[in-house]
């Protein structure tokens, strides 16, 4: 198995793990983290692609894309977290659906 295969397969796995968590975890913080894991997966795929030809120096273009992608992800994560936090401040819970909240339980969330 080549280095490219290893990185791109791990990246694919991370993407799918994030996707699963996004769909199944009701807590907004989990959802935001799930998207972060998925984006790390995409970056892994790109880093793997940068090495597909081999040689001493990797392809700089996927690296530049990853750097741009990281900044975009940092921005959207910051914004999503601020949104989640504001929702928590306004509603007292951090979920999208009221059905995902155990009203019976005591403080927390």
């Amino acid at each position: 198995m080549s280095q490219t295969d290893l990185y791109t397969l791990v990246g694919s796995a991370l993407f799918v793990i994030g996707l699963y968590a996004l769909m199944t975890r009701p807590h907004l913080l989990h959802k935001v983290l799930a998207l972060n894991i998925s984006s790390s997966g995409v970056f892994f795929v790109l880093v793997g692609i940068a090495r597909r030809v081999g040689g001493p120096v990797p392809d700089p273009l996927p690296h530049a894309m990853v750097l741009t992608g990281i900044v975009v992800t940092v921005s959207s994560t910051a914004f999503a977290l601020a949104l989640a936090k504001r929702i928590y401040t306004e509603t007292g819970t951090a979920a999208l659906d009221a059905a995902d909240v155990d009203v019976g339980e005591s403080l927390g969330g």
Partner: peptide
């Protein structure tokens, strides 16, 4: 203040698993 449930219903998880697979 309600606590958010940790997991989705089983049907949602099975569907999500199928999509992810």
């Amino acid at each position: 203040m309600g606590k958010v449930t940790a997991k989705s219903p089983i049907a949602v998880r099975v569907a999500a698993l199928a999509i992810c697979a």
